[in-house]
Design a protein around this nucleic acid. Structure first.
Length: 862
RNA sequence: GCCGGGAUGGCGGAAUCGGUAGACGCAGCGGAUUCAAAAUCCGCCGCUGGUAACAGUGUGGGGGUUCGAGUCCCCCUCCCGGCACCA
């Protein structure tokens, strides 16, 4: 055995052996129980970052642990290969996104392999390959024909200078990131998945996911946002027909129909037909509407901007009282939400209250709470209190509580044909059209005669040309005659191919299923999908808690309803790893553009952060998720090069529990490496004396017996930490403690050496899922030619004759007592009261109360 | 703004079911080894007072429940994630 721990040598040897013997190939035909362990696939951005290392190490620990436990494990890997960054790189470097993406995949695959993950590489897939997206297009056409996909207008960010649609990320403080132009809202036709049709099932299905974190389920439930309210209409007085269908009704939705008698105005979106009509003869209003159309469509921007409005001069009549109500245009009302109009009750809605105060609109109290006095001066929380409030100033509804009032008002509205109760979801249909090149083409042909025609299955895939270099001004596919010009599949006439591509969330919504049968060319999925699905353990960043995970759950149900899978949910257990975060640093140029610097290139001199290259100060931008956009990613490659993959893996697992965010710091890596060297040395010294059979029973000296007890406690703890708690930092700490204790065990007699053998074998096996290379190398030295199995707990080794209990007086720690581990509650109490400490505090008086917590403590209340 | 999460020594973190706060590691300090250094090994290490035994105090801030609160409840502050076209 080598005396020195040489990571690169043992890592290369181990990896070569795994590749040669296809150790991690998942067997489709095995009769062992399956364990499908999946980590969210990476976007091939160029290089691995620490978040990847963390994510894939967590998955690998669980995969390897279950393999040691006898499961038939599948751990696949692939590439979420379409996306915006490839286009940005293309613009910057004049390379086609395809070439850039494939080069990144090759590099990152090499990096993943150097980390020694137990991945079945035979199942690798990339979403930008036609043999993958072909089936996505096929499903699209199926769903289009079923009406699950439909087309409607939707609002996007429009850059008037670059003449292109912008992603929310590309809008910086209301301006286009490249042009600096004020962004405008523009309505364009898009395809939508009718996800709202599945809203109820997506909500109720959360109850069948005990293996998901509560916080994720709560976030999804709130996102879906089921609420029961009332849809009601205000009458638009006779005039040219205005609203949809010429009904002359202005519809709104409210969850607070009980406040209907307090409506003092109605607010509509800038794009609403009523607003458009009112602006025809009102240049001031037209200017305001134009102003409302500026700015991004992001909800966070909408919610935080200053609420502005303008009177249209139009009036509608209240559905119950007939009272004349003014119509305003509000910049906070979105056309694409609900009806594009809201009723305003300033007295009982905080946003309406502020708006009414600002514009001097009437505020009419219609809800009261016992003992509270309404005042127009300032908003108070109770104004909106559904639980305590009851109707006032509301005529026949006075005195009714929330539910009774809503019921009564809904019934009266229904009688007039002006409203009904309605279940509403916050969730909106999923718009998937992207006016971008590097994505999966939407398989639709536009024919003058036949309309939108889905591409027939036999003509799929619609292949995306890979030799395109975008220039930042619109979708380059529009300029490709060979792509655009086509023949209508229905009538054979000349037609135009859709050039929009799909949201990349579509690819990542079903890849987990395709891993079961990546080579199947007869359809989207084959029977192997039901062998492997659902995924037993899914691991990924908490930032995906809502969108990706909700879309994947939705897709699973779509595939189920197509007969492709038989389960209802895709992921049985979910682990959401926390962010890897790091400091950010930037400099701002005169035109307000920020340049971000990597923390590795920044140092602190006299408490000032400066760039190493020029010694000039940089601005600290706070600690944020490692991201390309902030250039604060730490490159794990340097870590691997210097210390080896095992150290990188050990450190990321040891530094923080998986679900918490991990603040990066270079310190600490050294400690992880030191531990591996120490482990190697302990094994080396033992092996030098000749290997022996592990302890198999018999009498032991006290020190060895204590160590054996600690060993079996550790096996119990580590198994529980990995399998149930999924908290690896404490598992590692427990093995470190065990190794510290082992180093202190003296004696070279055969019995002691057999205990040492037992401890080393078990410790190496327990660490192997985390540090597989050194694990394999050491196990081969300790127990040549033996297969490594997960160690079993010897219950007999855990038995203790005497235990120590904490002694408290009035809840404060005052000492300890030793009692037989079998001692009864009475015996423990007696022993505690007899002790010196108790006598001192009791001063001869009897105790008020004695609390005995078995195995833990005794508390004497005096 | 809304939804979700977090805050514990100089630092990362531990305390799993309300029961010894600070495991394990980093940094630091002292010692051994060495010609010297690196590496390694041993020891100390929340704060205040005390030579010490020990006492007091301490888990972002304020209040509460309890024999006992880092953990439960109420209020607040700050930080992080998401907000539908970043992935």
């Amino acid at each position: 055995m080598q005396e020195k721990y040489l990571p690169s040598e043992i890592e290369h040897t181990a990896q070569a052996r795994w590749t040669a013997s296809q150790t991690y190939r998942a067997r489709d035909d095995s009769d062992r129980p399956k364990y499908y362990c999946l980590s969210m696939f990476p976007y091939p951005s160029g290089r691995l970052h620490m978040g990847h290392v963390r994510n894939y190490t967590i998955g690998d620990v669980l995969a390897r642990y279950h393999a040691m436990r006898g499961y038939n494990v599948m751990q696949p890997m692939g590439w979420d290969a379409f996306g915006l960054p490839a286009e940005n790189a293309a613009i910057a470097n004049n390379v086609p996104p395809a070439a850039w993406t494939y080069a990144n995949i090759d590099h990152m695959r090499t990096q993943l392999q150097a980390l020694g993950f137990a991945i079945d590489w035979s199942r690798e897939l990339a979403t930008c390959k036609p043999d993958y997206y072909r089936w996505e297009q096929w499903l699209f056409t199926r769903l289009f024909e079923k009406g699950v996909i439909y087309k409607k207008m939707a609002t996007v960010n429009w850059d008037p200078i670059d003449q292109t649609v912008l992603a929310n990320e590309q809008v910086i403080e209301g301006r286009g990131w490249r042009s600096g132009a004020l962004v405008e809202k523009r309505d364009i036709p898009m395809y939508f998945f009718r996800i709202t049709q599945y809203a109820d099932e997506l909500l109720s299905g959360l109850d069948n996911l005990p293996g998901w974190p509560e916080r994720v389920k709560t976030m999804q439930a709130n996102w879906i946002g089921k609420s029961v309210g009332v849809r009601l209409a205000f009458k638009i007085p006779p005039a040219p027909p205005l609203s949809k269908g010429g009904e002359s009704l202005l519809w709104v939705f409210t969850t607070r129909a009980d406040t209907l008698m307090g409506v003092t105005f109605v607010a509509v979106a800038a794009e609403h037909p009523l607003a458009t009509r009112a602006a025809e003869n009102n240049p001031e209003l037209a200017a305001f509407i134009a102003e409302c159309k500026q700015g991004s469509v992001a909800e966070a921007d909408m919610a935080t901007m200053e609420k502005k409005g303008m009177d249209t001069g139009l009036k509608v009549s209240h559905p119950l009282t007939g009272e004349s109500i003014p119509v305003w245009v509000g910049n906070y009302v979105l056309m694409s939400y609900g009806e594009g109009a809201v009723m305003a009750v300033p007295a009982h809605d905080e946003r309406d209250f502020g708006f009414a105060q600002k514009y001097g609109l009437p505020i009419k109290q219609v809800i009261g709470v016992e003992g509270e006095t309404f005042s127009l001066d300032a908003w108070q929380e109770w104004y909106a209190d559904k639980a305590r409030g009851h109707c006032v100033n509301s005529g026949k509804y006075d005195g009714l509580g929330y539910e009774a009032a809503v019921d009564a008002i809904a019934a009266d509205l229904a009688a007039k044909g002006l409203g009904e109760k309605k279940t509403q979801f916050r969730l909106r249909d999923w718009g998937i059209s992207r006016q971008r090149y590097w994505g999966c083409p939407i398989p639709i042909v536009h024919c003058e005669a036949c309309g939108d025609v889905p591409v027939p299955a036999g003509q799929l895939p619609v292949v995306l040309p890979e030799d395109v270099v975008p220039d930042g001004s619109g979708n380059p596919l529009n300029k490709r005659a060979d792509f655009v010009n086509c023949v209508c599949p229905k009538c054979g006439g000349a037609a135009r191919r859709e050039t929009d591509t799909m949201d990349t969330f579509v690819e990542s919504s079903w890849y987990y299923a395709r891993y079961a049968c990546p080579d199947f060319d007869g359809g989207m999925l084959d029977a192997r999908a039901n062998k492997w699905l659902p995924v037993d353990q899914y691991i990924g960043g908490i930032e995906h808690a809502i969108l990706h995970l909700l879309y994947a759950r939705f897709f699973h149900k779509l595939m189920r309803d197509e007969g492709l899978v038989s389960s209802d949910e895709p992921f049985v257990n979910l682990l959401t790893q926390g962010m890897v975060i790091a400091d950010t640093y930037y400099r701002e140029s005169a035109d307000g553009k920020k340049t971000w610097f990597n923390p590795a290139d920044v140092e602190t001199r006299d408490d000032v952060a400066v760039l190493k290259a020029d010694g000039q100060p940089v601005v600290a931008g706070g600690t944020e998720k490692m991201a390309k956009s902030k250039n604060n990613g730490v490159d794990p490659q340097a870590l691997i090069d210097q210390y080896g993959a095992d150290t990188a893996r050990l450190f990321t697992m040891f530094a923080a529990p998986p679900e918490q965010s991990l603040e990066w710091s270079d310190a600490g890596v050294e400690g992880a490496h030191r531990f591996l060297k120490r482990l190697w040395k302990l094994a080396f010294e033992h092996v030098q004396g000749g290997t022996v059979a592990a302890f198999a029973g018999g009498e032991l000296p006290d020190a060895a017996k204590t160590l054996r007890r600690q060993l079996h406690q550790t096996i119990h703890k580590v198994s529980d930490d990995i399998e149930r708690r999924k908290q690896f930092n404490t598992a590692i700490a427990a093995v470190m403690e065990l190794m510290n204790a082992l180093a202190k065990l003296e004696g070279m007699d055969a019995t002691t050496r057999s205990v040492r053998q037992e401890v080393l074998e078990a410790a190496v096996a327990m660490l192997a899922p985390i540090v597989p290379h050194i694990g394999e190398a050491l196990y081969a030295e300790l127990k040549p030619d033996a297969a490594m199995a997960w160690p079993a707990v010897d219950e007999a080794a855990l038995v203790q004759d005497e235990i120590e209990l904490m002694l408290q007086v009035n809840g404060k720690l005052r000492g300890q007592i030793r009692v037989a581990s079998a001692a009864t509650r009475e015996a423990v109490e007696a022993a505690a009261l007899a002790g010196e400490v108790a006598q001192k505090y009791l001063e001869g008086k009897p105790p008020k109360k004695v609390v005995v917590v078995p195995g833990r403590l005794v508390n004497i209340v005096v």
